[in-house]
C-alpha cells in the first residue's frame, strides 16, 4: 500500500506539489494524469525516494519497489542479462541469496513474460525502443515487487507496442498483486490499466474517479483533458508563462 499524505514540494519558487494526498491499495492501479509540469513525475520520485518532500510524508508497506522509466533507463554499459539481473548482483539483501544459475533462470523467465527470448547477450543499444521498454519491465518485476511505479510507460511507442505494454501492466497487476501507479497522458492506457484516476493541476487534485467516469465527466477539468481542448480551466506550462 502507498499512503501519500499532505505532501508539498517546491523547486525554487515554483510549487510543484501542494498538500497532495492519496492512497493506493495492494492490487490496485492508480493513474495520475494531467498536463506536463503539474507534478506527476515528482510524485513518483517522492514515492521512490529519489526526491525528498518539503512537507508531508509517504508511507509504504514494503520497500520492495520498482519503477519503469519513461525512456527505459537501461544501463547502457551492461548487457540485457546484467540489466535484468542487476538487483540480484548488486542489492545487499539479494546478493548471495541465489546462485548464478537460479538468477539466469529467473531472468529468462521474466524476459519470456514480456515476450523476449534469447536476447540476454545483446546490449541495450542493439534493441528497438519498444524492446528496451519491455526489458525495463522485466528488470522492474524481477524481484516480484509489491509496489510498481510506471512513468509514462507508453510514451513514444506505436499503438501496437502501447497495447502490448498495457497488457503487461494488467498482467503484472493480476500476477503480483502490487500497488501500482501509472503516470500517463494516454487515454487508452488510463482506460485499460487504471482502477482509479486522479487529475493534477498546479500540484493539487482537481478531479478524481474511475476511468469510465473520466470519459463521461462534465467537470471542466476532466472535460478539457479528455477532449484535449486548449480552452478550459487548465493552462499548459507554455501558456502559463
Amino acid at each position: 500500500m502507498i499512503k501519500f499524505e499532505h505532501v508539498s514540494k517546491k523547486y525554487d519558487d515554483k510549487v510543484v506539489l501542494n498538500d497532495l494526498s492519496f492512497t493506493v491499495d495492494a492490487g490496485e492501479t492508480l493513474a495520475i494524469v494531467g498536463f506536463s509540469g503539474t507534478g506527476k513525475s515528482t510524485a513518483l520520485k517522492i514515492i521512490s525516494g529519489l526526491v525528498e518532500p518539503d512537507l508531508g510524508s509517504v508511507h509504504l508497506d514494503s520497500r520492495n519497489m520498482s519503477m519503469v522509466f519513461q525512456y527505459s533507463a537501461l544501463f547502457d554499459s551492461l548487457n540485457i542479462y546484467e540489466n535484468v539481473a542487476f538487483a540480484f548482483h548488486e542489492r545487499d539483501d539479494l546478493k548471495n541469496k541465489y546462485t548464478e544459475s537460479q538468477i539466469m533462470q529467473i531472468v529468462s523467465e521474466k524476459l519470456r513474460l514480456v515476450g523476449l527470448q534469447n536476447i540476454e547477450d545483446l546490449m541495450p543499444s542493439e534493441l528497438s525502443g519498444g524492446m528496451q521498454k519491455r526489458v525495463s519491465f522485466a528488470r522492474a518485476i524481477v524481484t516480484n515487487p509489491k509496489i510498481i511505479l510506471y512513468d509514462e510507460p507508453t510514451a513514444g511507442l506505436d499503438p501496437v507496442s502501447s497495447t502490448v505494454i498495457e497488457d503487461y501492466i494488467i498482467r503484472l497487476k493480476e500476477e503480483l498483486k502490487a500497488a501500482s501507479i501509472v503516470v500517463t497522458h494516454q487515454m487508452s492506457t488510463i482506460k485499460r490499466t487504471a482502477d482509479r484516476v486522479i487529475m493534477l493541476y498546479e500540484g493539487k487534485i482537481v478531479w478524481q474517479g474511475t476511468p469510465a467516469e473520466l470519459l463521461e465527466a462534465k467537470d471542466p477539468y476532466a472535460h478539457q483533458f479528455v477532449y484535449a481542448k486548449r480552452e478550459g480551466p487548465m493552462k499548459t506550462t507554455a501558456e502559463a508563462r
Binding site: K45, S48, G49, L50, R63, M65, S66, M67, F69, Q70, Y71, A73, L74, F75, D76, F86, A87, E90, R91, D92, D93, R139, L149
Partner: peptide, 13 residues
Amino acid sequence: VTEQVDAISVSGV
C-alpha cells in the same frame, strides 16, 4: 541525465 542513476537507486542499490 538519462535516469540510469535513478534506476540504480530504485533497484535498492
